[in-house]
């Protein structure tokens, strides 16, 4: 029983960051329809920025977190303007190839700048975990969970209720009509990509201090993000959030009670099963036809 409770607690905390990765990608992949292979690198970039600010520069941990997210958004905006803007209207394969190139270039750049050896980041939270009966959790994981949930709620609210969110939805539903209605669609493209990238950077900056930071850390994160987005349904922020939690729960319980060696396989197995029955994902928005 204690073991089960511990597994469920672990899955909740892990799910928060999976959800964060998932909603960042669902904005870009689900709404903008850009197959964003740089998502994992933005995650890595966020973690390295956190490392740079906290370790060599000795910046305050919480300030570093904000700076890492802001720089992640800036990098996302640059990628949009430099790489994607000239490709508006190009077919999906061209964009995909460019993004694969950007992914490889960014990963090698990280390796060049910070070397392949893993880095660790100090954090200001107490070393002793919070103990509730037989289960325990570290303070930094609680912090990460809370911040992740706040970002998820914030992003959903942004898309649903703000003017920018409305403009985003309008632009990606019908770009030409949106432009005719006076929406500055270029700004909307940049903003969407920047927000999605910022969320990935936030996930990296939050998880960097829990784990270790190295150039290829984004590969598995990107793979899981794609899985979460597809599981939740393209473009559905709520779906991506729930998808993140489902994936974490499946991995945690699968590893705990079936086989830890196949931990990552459990999640993907579940995705295959769900897609067999719901090919558009769990919470896909209805596609408009015509």
């Amino acid at each position: 029983m204690d073991q089960l409770l511990q597994h469920i607690l672990n899955a909740l905390i892990l799910g928060g960051t999976y959800a964060l990765l998932g909603i960042g990608l669902t904005l870009i992949f689900g709404i903008m329809r850009v197959v964003n292979f740089t998502h994992g690198e933005l995650y890595t970039f966020g973690a390295y920025m956190m490392f740079m600010f906290v370790m060599p520069l000795q910046t305050n941990f919480f300030l570093a977190l904000i700076l890492a997210v802001v720089l992640g958004m800036a990098l996302g905006a640059i990628i949009e303007v430099v790489l994607l803007k000239p490709l508006r209207g190009a077919d999906i394969d061209t964009t995909m190839l460019i993004m694969i190139g950007a992914w490889i270039a960014m990963q090698n750049m990280e390796q060049f700048v910070w070397s392949g050896i893993a880095k660790s980041i100090d954090n200001p939270f107490p070393v002793e975990p919070l103990v509730i009966g037989a289960i325990s959790v570290s303070w930094i994981r609680i912090f990460v969970f809370v911040v992740a949930c706040a970002l998820i709620v914030g992003t959903s609210a942004l898309i649903r209720w703000t003017k920018l969110g409305k403009a985003m939805r309008a632009t990606f539903q019908d770009t030409e009509t949106a432009a005719l209605m006076g929406i500055r669609i270029n700004s909307v493209y940049i903003a969407t990509f920047a927000i999605g990238s910022g969320l990935a950077a936030a996930a990296g900056a939050l998880l960097g201090p829990i784990f270790v930071v190295y150039p290829t850390m984004g590969d598995l994160a990107a793979l899981k993000s794609f899985a979460i987005v597809i599981l939740g349904g393209l473009g559905s922020v709520g779906g991506a959030a729930i998808g993140g939690f489902i994936l974490a729960m499946m991995e945690e319980l699968g590893a705990g009670y079936i086989s830890s060696g196949y931990r990552d396989a459990m999640g993907f197995l579940l995705i295959i099963v769900i897609l067999l029955f719901r090919p558009t994902g769990l919470f896909a928005q209805k596609e408009r036809i015509g």
Binding site: D2, Q3, Q6, H7, N10, L14, L207, F211, V212, T216, M217, D219, L220, E251, E252, L253, G254, A255, G256, S259, S260, G261, R263, D264
Partner: peptide, 20 residues
């Protein structure tokens, strides 16, 4: 006897089992 993927960073599930 618990195993972990060479790339795995979150080992909480394995450790919960070891603890139990």
């Amino acid at each position: 006897i618990e195993t972990m993927d060479a790339k795995a960073t979150d080992l909480s599930a394995q450790l919960a089992k070891v603890k139990a």
